[in-house]
Design a protein around this nucleic acid. Structure first.
Length: 432
DNA sequence: TCTGGGGTCCTAGGACCC
DNA sequence: TCTGGGGTCCTAGGACCC
């Protein structure tokens, strides 16, 4: 097979979390929908109607109480089990359309569609879109181009212009047509250009549109910014610099951090919370088959409470050898919390970060002294059993004593929809 | 009352070594 | 008067993404 061009399609689920809620609740189809962050505090997903009302991503929900009431907006707590499962369905559908797929986030995938004849690309895009809709009920937008950055551009344009009916293929655009399109986009709309870079580009050389960025001297960009921004410029020119990553890379750092459902003052509760986060982080570590040697924790007060005493404490500890055995971490965590705890503070958030992560197989290579492979294997078997039980019967069916049993500090989730697809007790019932 | 939770990569600068 | 220079490793911080 002769391969003329690199062709990549970006498939992006529209307002993904909101769309997931709508799949199982037809009454929401024509109602504005908002999905909230942990603790039901911020807006993390908005239906089109809500975007049209001017509600911003990340906006605290208390700022828009009136708007919500006026427009009868449906509010939901984040229902991650549902979104993760719906995502898996979308992704497995997409896998049938391309030999190489990069799952970029919970709601986006890049597909290598170089095998499709150029004149068939538009139809292929529509077929992808219709198939995903039919099999999952999730609406998606499709952007097709010669680089990932341009595919992102196409997707951005599709989302804001219903005339494209969900699919834009830039491969058939001439350079002039493409430039005209890029001239209509601001640099903030370009993947990789955030608010800081946008501001610096504007003030230093009056670069405002995607087209202007495309024709900016790449070496000046490299010098003033970084190789990352240089790549963005080249990608806008149709030179692919960001390869498709089809294999998920094991994470180099694993974080579990959350705000509390209410302020926490006591050391005991803080110990429970940080232990719970640590246990969850180590669980994620095992999920990807890794071990870690380094753990950091932090606790902090509420920075928005200007009149209350403010404090942020953090600490890092290195273990004698890398492990994924929860008690090995819990042992040091309690000690760490005690040493950064400050009496008289009202804590709002805490977190745990694991680093110095290596694959479990590598562990055996070069360890001496205290370390016994046999003992580690035994620990691993114990954790495997814990994981299986929790996987089967649900999170935290069994857990460690240090995590506490009350957990009244846990985040609030007062508006969670049923876990329609992952929990037998909450499955949709059709009655006659 | 109420303000998210994950990740990535790159660069600059200091420590250290020869 | 006048204080090397280059390589490597590590860390902190800054930028971005969803």
């Amino acid at each position: 097979m002769r391969r003329m061009h690199n062709v990549v399609a970006l498939i992006d689920c529209n307002n993904f979390y909101c769309s997931c809620e709508r799949v199982f609740n037809a009454a929401l189809r024509h109602r504005p929908v908002i999905v909230l962050s942990n603790n039901d505090s911020c807006v993390v997903a908005r239906s089109n109607e809500v975007k049209a009302l001017g509600v911003k991503m990340g906006q605290p929900v208390f700022e828009i109480r009136d708007l919500i009431e006026q427009h009868d907006v449906a509010l939901f707590s984040s229902n991650y089990p549902l979104y993760a499962d719906m995502s898996a369905r979308v992704m497995s559908t997409l896998a049938s359309f391309a030999p190489r797929v990069e799952i970029y986030s919970i709601d986006e995938s890049f597909l290598d569609v170089s095998h499709i004849r150029p004149e068939c690309l538009d139809a292929y895009g529509h077929e992808i879109r219709e198939t995903v809709w039919r099999l999952t009920g999730i609406p998606v937008s499709v952007g097709i181009a010669s680089t990932k950055t341009l595919a992102k551009v196409a997707n951005e344009v599709v989302k804001h212009n219903p005339c494209y009916q969900g699919v834009l293929n830039l491969i058939r655009y001439t350079e002039e047509e493409l430039d005209e399109l890029l001239a209509s986009l601001t640099i903030k709309d370009v993947w990789g250009i955030g608010p800081r870079y946008a501001h610096r580009l504007q003030t230093s050389r009056n670069i405002c549109t995607a087209k202007e960025l495309k024709y900016t001297d790449e070496y000046w960009i490299r010098k003033r910014f970084s190789v990352v921004v240089q790549r963005t410029v080249l990608e806008l020119r149709g030179i692919a610099c960001i390869p498709l990553e089809t294999e998920p890379k094991p994470k180099q750092g694993i974080m579990t951090a959350k705000s509390f459902g209410r302020p926490v003052e006591s050391l005991v509760e803080l110990e429970e919370a940080v232990s719970t986060y640590a246990a969850r982080a180590v669980e994620k570590l095992r999920d990807q088959g890794s071990v870690a040697a380094c753990i950091s924790i932090f606790i902090q007060t509420n920075p928005f409470k200007a009149d209350a005493p403010q404090y942020a404490g953090s600490l890092t500890r290195v273990l004698p050898f890398p492990t994924a055995f929860t008690p090995d971490f819990l042992g040091v965590v309690l000690d760490m919390v005690r040493s950064i705890y400050k009496l008289g503070c009202s804590y709002k958030k805490a977190g745990v970060f694991l680093s110095k992560i290596i694959p479990q197989e590598v562990l055996q290579a070069d360890l001496f002294g205290d370390f016994s492979l046999e003992r580690e294997a035994k620990k691993a078997r114990l954790m495997a059993v814990v994981d299986i039980i929790n996987h089967w019967w649900g999170h935290n069916t069994i857990f460690f004593g240090a995590q506490g049993i009350g957990r009244t500090w846990k985040m609030r989730q007062e508006r969670r929809s049923p876990r329609y697809t992952t929990c037998w007790g909450e499955i949709v019932v059709v009655s006659t």
